[in-house]
Simulated assay, not measured.
Amino acid sequence: MMAIVHFLPILWGMIISIMQIDATFVSRWYSAPFVGLENYARLLDFDSTVGSRFWFSLRQTTIFAIGTVVGSYSLGLASAVILDSDFRGSNVARILVLLPWISPAVVVLLVWRMMLLSDTGVVNNVLLSAGIIGEPIVWLIGANSIYSMILVNVWINFPWATIMLYAALKSIPGHLYEAARIDGAGRWGQFRHITLPQLKPISVVISLLLVLWSFINFTVPYVLLGQSPTRSGEVSMLFIYNYAFHNYAFGLGAAMSVVLFLFAMGIALVYYKYAVSGSFEGEGR
């Protein structure tokens, strides 16, 4: 099943990336000419239109991933700490926190798209009423589109981070906090010297998965910004889809996908070597 679902599509994408499959050969791909690394050479030509746009989209994807990780983890950690305390209605609060994550993604994105409209959107109306802004902000077009995607992606993913961190908080031995209180540590000292170190193994896993999910995220940019986003919101997945299917350049599109795959896997391997494996080794010691 792993071979059918994962390895064969990856191998097939790599094969397509070294062939010139376009509108002429899309119905008879087996007769498409072999071009070797020509598609990859076009991507490495930063002066070409497709090369410059692809690497810019990769840059925007990196910003999208970093913003998602920082926002989702920060909000997830704050929510987990609050839910870990005993208060009236805590069970209801735990259910409410899960709503953005368990709701259908397309429905959530369409609602956010309406909320972020510049003229009738709820977000601008609230900010204007509060006096935070003086005029409506255009969220879905122009330079702000990347920040809109980060905001919505954080909203969707932070409940998952909350669940993981909440479970990790429950697994921290209580005697560590008791010993810290005896030594005179306050709440901030306990959080800094006990909670955060104990959460490090799960934190690095959460960060790694959020980065990978952000790099391959197609639903958020496509539903939120549409098929023709402005340059700021043109992340790699959306650019590859639009370029490959609108221009029938499936060979070049496959080459872009392979580069994106290798880039994401490179980040994952480096991160795993210096963060994930080190955290679990340290935990074992």
Rank of each mutant, 00 (worst) to 15 (best):
T195A: 06
I18W: 03
R94S: 04
V211N: 10
V92L: 14
N91Y: 11
V235L: 09
A41D: 12
A180P: 04
W188A: 10
M237Y: 02
P173A: 06
Y243V: 09
H193V: 05
F218M: 04
I132Y: 10
F56E: 11
F87V: 04
S79R: 00
L165R: 06
M2R: 09
A143W: 11
H246P: 06
I95E: 12
F25V: 08
V92F: 14
I132F: 13
I95S: 12
L8F: 11
F263D: 08
N125A: 14
V81M: 12
Y222V: 07
P229G: 08
L260G: 03
Y73D: 00
D45V: 01
G121W: 01
F87A: 04
P229F: 03
Q227V: 13
R94P: 00
E178C: 08
A167F: 09
A78D: 01
V152F: 02
Y30H: 15
L109W: 00
F215W: 09
D45E: 06
V258K: 09
S257N: 10
I206H: 02
N144S: 11
A23E: 15
V69I: 12
R94H: 09
K273T: 13
T62W: 07
V138N: 14
I137N: 03
Q190P: 07
L210H: 07
G278M: 11
V111Y: 06
E38C: 06
V138R: 14
L127W: 03
L127V: 05
V92A: 15
F34K: 08
G233C: 05
S48A: 05
S103M: 12
M164G: 07
L212V: 15
Y147L: 13
V276I: 14
F218E: 05
L151Y: 08
G134E: 05
V126E: 04
L238A: 05
T68A: 07
S232P: 02
Q227K: 10
A80L: 03
A275K: 12
L116V: 05
I10G: 06
G71Y: 02
A254H: 05
G284Q: 11
I267W: 14
V111P: 00
I141L: 14
W12D: 07
V122A: 15
Y166S: 11
I137P: 04
S207L: 10
M256Y: 06
F46R: 03
G189V: 07
V97D: 02
R231M: 15
F34T: 10
S129I: 08
G71D: 02
G51E: 07
F7P: 01
V126R: 04
L208R: 04
A32R: 02
S129Y: 14
A143M: 11
L37H: 09
E234Y: 08
I10M: 15
L176K: 07
Q198F: 13
R59S: 14
I66S: 05
